[in-house]
């Protein structure tokens, strides 16, 4: 029961941040793939820098343990990502932003969106044993992290990621690495 309430509260803040970042808008999602508005990338990379720093610091202090790390199986992660990118550029949302947009009252997110996710889930669940075991068996490294896999210092890995993110933000915001598309 407690876990249910925690999940609900986490979801509320998550959805709130998606709304405030503007990710529930069609143009924000599609324009990251056109490089004319990099909001999605800025939002995600900022979240990653904050959360990876916090989590590794808290684990270092012995205050938390990590939950099950999402599994790395190179071909599946990559192919899944490619198909996902196609779906995202086409529809202008993803499962999380669709849920938040539905809460705003966007009926196209709520009705065909919810319905489509459920249909997709059914198709996936019924074809799972023909698809997933085969694709996840290729180059499978299990539930691993980069520091564990390559014997890196978590601190230096996170520092590198943070500096790369800052450089990218600088290039986008100050140097003008953002395209001016013919279609705004």
């Amino acid at each position: 029961m407690t876990n249910f309430i925690i999940a609900l509260a986490l979801g509320v803040f998550f959805g709130f941040s998606l709304n405030k970042a503007g990710l529930t808008k069609y143009n924000k999602i599609i324009n990251v793939y056109r490089f004319t508005d990099m909001t999605v990338l800025k939002f995600m990379m900022t979240a990653l820098v904050v959360s990876m720093s916090g989590l590794y610091a808290l684990r270092g202090l012995g205050l938390i343990t990590f939950p099950n790390v999402p599994a790395t199986y190179i071909v599946g992660n990559l192919v899944g990502g490619i198909i996902f990118g196609f779906g995202m550029a086409l529809s202008g949302y993803c499962p999380g932003t669709a849920a938040a947009g539905a809460g705003e009252g966007k009926l196209d997110y709520l009705i065909p969106g919810l319905f489509g996710f459920l249909v997709g889930a059914v198709i996936y669940g019924l074809t799972y044993d023909k698809v997933f075991p085969a694709i996840s068996a290729i180059a499978n490294y299990g539930n691993t992290t980069m520091p564990d896999l390559w014997n890196l210092s978590p601190f230096l890995t996170i520092l590198t990621f943070a500096l790369m993110s800052l450089l990218l933000f600088y290039l986008i915001d100050r140097v003008g690495w953002q395209r001016k598309g013919s279609e705004q």
Binding site: M44, G116, T144
Partner: peptide, 26 residues
């Protein structure tokens, strides 16, 4: 398409990109 792709990949933008990324999962 999104839901099926998330199944193959092992999660979506939130469950894999954000949640996996913050744990430094490749």
């Amino acid at each position: 398409v999104l839901e099926y792709a998330a199944g193959i990949a092992g999660g979506c933008t939130s469950g894999l990109a954000i949640s996996g990324g913050m744990l430094l999962a490749p």
